[in-house]
Every structure is written in structure tokens, then in C-alpha cells.
């Protein structure tokens, strides 16, 4: 069966060990985690886990049911197919020799990123957007020589009904 990519938003008790219950479920049952991001919500005792996963429709169904079965999981929302806002942030440390500096600044500007650290031989670029946009920036910066990257993984929230196109 065809593999599908799904974006899950999971509300959980903000307690020690909860993340390990989730990741343990995935490793123990052989499910995939493509990206994962966790932080507290407005309620301090609740955290939101945003996860991108993939699998056949049967596996995706099991993933959602198994997550719901965990005692510390409050709610699982599958944002796939819904209207939502999705963002990821990346910090990219890229070689910045003098002949490349202008080019890097231009690329950063086009993608509405920022230079957040400047060194004699490098820039650190911060860029925010959907994973595809970050992929595009990385591609353009590659020829200069990327030293290191750190990506946050996706975070997402549903939009209010009908206010926008699907995940625009």
C-alpha cells in the first residue's frame, strides 16, 4: 500500500517520561518519526507534540489509535487534509568568504531570513517557513559550503475554518 505523510498534533500531559512513552511506542512498533517538536502550551501542565510521520493508511490508523491509547495523551489531531499553518525554523552556518558574502545576504533576503551571527569566515542564517522553503535555501547555500545546520522540526496549528487554502 502507498505510503502517506501525516502531520499530527498531539496534546499530552506535561510530565516526565511522556515523550519517552511516545518515542518508545514508535521505535517498539517500527513506526517512523520524520520530525518531532515539543513544548508547553498555554496550560502549563499540557504540552503540544507536533509530529510528521509516514506509513501506509493502515499504519497511520494504528499510529493514531496507539497514541490515543497512551494514558498521558489527551488528544491526537491529524492535521493532514485540514487547513493549517505549518512552520519550521533552521539555523544554517555557512562558509562566507568575501566573494560569497553578498550572494548569501541576497539569498537570505529573498527568503526573508536573517543573519543572526557573523564571523570572519562564516554567517549563521536563520530561516523560517515550510520544510520545502528551508530545503530550497539549503540548496542555494550548498555551493558556499554548509558547515552545520540545526532544524526545529515542524510546528503547526489548524486555521480557523475556511480562512485560507489548504496549508498555504
Amino acid at each position: 500500500m502507498e505510503e502517506q505523510r501525516h502531520l499530527l498534533s498531539i496534546l499530552v500531559d506535561n510530565e516526565p517520561g511522556v515523550l519517552s512513552r511516545i518515542t518508545g511506542l514508535f521505535s517498539g512498533r517500527g513506526y517512523n518519526i520524520d520530525s518531532l517538536s515539543v513544548a508547553e502550551t498555554v496550560e502549563p501542565n499540557v504540552s503540544r507534540v507536533t509530529m510528521v510521520t509516514h506509513g501506509s493508511p493502515g499504519i497511520i490508523e494504528q499510529i493514531k489509535k496507539q497514541l490515543n491509547k497512551l494514558i498521558n495523551v489527551i488528544k491526537v489531531t491529524d492535521l493532514t487534509g485540514m487547513h493549517y499553518v505549518l512552520r519550521e525554523m533552521a539555523l544554517i552556518k555557512v562558509n562566507a568568504k568575501s566573494e560569497h558574502r553578498a550572494e548569501i545576504l541576497r539569498i537570505t533576503d529573498i527568503f526573508r531570513g536573517q543573519i543572526v551571527d557573523v564571523g570572519i569566515e562564516h554567517f549563521t542564517v536563520k530561516v523560517t517557513g515550510e520544510p520545502e522553503k528551508i530545503g530550497a535555501v539549503l540548496n542555494l547555500l550548498k555551493p558556499m559550503g554548509i558547515r552545520e545546520i540545526a532544524r526545529t522540526g515542524c510546528v503547526a496549528l489548524p486555521r480557523e475554518n475556511g480562512t485560507s487554502n489548504k496549508n498555504a
Partner: peptide, 14 residues
């Protein structure tokens, strides 16, 4: 033991 038994209990507590 809470870590060890996470995948084989319905739930566990420390």
C-alpha cells in the same frame, strides 16, 4: 524500572 516496563505495562508511575 519505569523505563524498562513502559512498553509492557498499561501504565506506570514513579
Amino acid at each position: 524500572i519505569v523505563g524498562i516496563t513502559r512498553p509492557c505495562t498499561k501504565h506506570n508511575y514513579l
